[in-house]
Amino acid sequence: MVKVVIVDDKLKTQENVKEVIIPVLKKYEDEIDIQCYCGYNSQLAQEIQKQDDKKIYILDINLESQITGLNIALKIRDYDWNSEIIFLTNHDHYLDKVYRNVFKICKFIEKFDNMNYRLTNCIEMIMKKKFDIKKFHFKNNRIEINIYLKDILYIYRDKEDRKIFIETDNNTYILNKNLKDMFELLDDDRFKQVHRSCIANINRVKNYDWDNGNFTLDNGKTVDLLSSGFKEELTC
């Protein structure tokens, strides 16, 4: 089941949004639960605290109260980093960069700029991602880290440093562990061993070059850690 929470002070906009998103959602899910609120109230607060697996928030930034859509987004992220948030706005993209990055806002959609088409595309994009929210979690007495598994490209063990390197789209995280420990921590079928010292996220691998011993990721990067000894296991 997918749950959609629409927060807009105009009933007409709520109805319009519902009309746009229902046909898109029905393509991917049989059960849809749509809830509408005119502003932040105790029921919305309770709803925010519920940790549902598949949830989309569509928020109007300008609400007729002190608590704006942005404030509601901050409250959502106090409890829940997994839900998708879409903003409907009359403003320009000034807030776009900060909130998109910091609060994982899926999209800012201007109400007067082809809203229906853009909202449809956005919902399609969210549903195609299939709410892949599984994370790699690690904690020590200095820091706590959570990385979406979908963002991990590959993991390898460096012979010289004798440490694990986790490569993601933007960063490299280094850990004092071994590959066997990493398999246990990741606990997901998308991670397969492709080399004695490398685990790859097969969902992010575009091409395997078994002859040359490398694989190419979907971001274009080529990694020279592919061993034909693991070909059979991978192709099964």
Binding site: F138, R142, K163, N171, Y173, I174, L175
Partner: peptide, 13 residues
């Protein structure tokens, strides 16, 4: 935001 290499066992030391 950040984009670099982080040693999780050494950070903060």
């Amino acid at each position: 935001t950040f984009s670099c290499s982080v040693d999780l066992d050494e950070i903060g030391k």
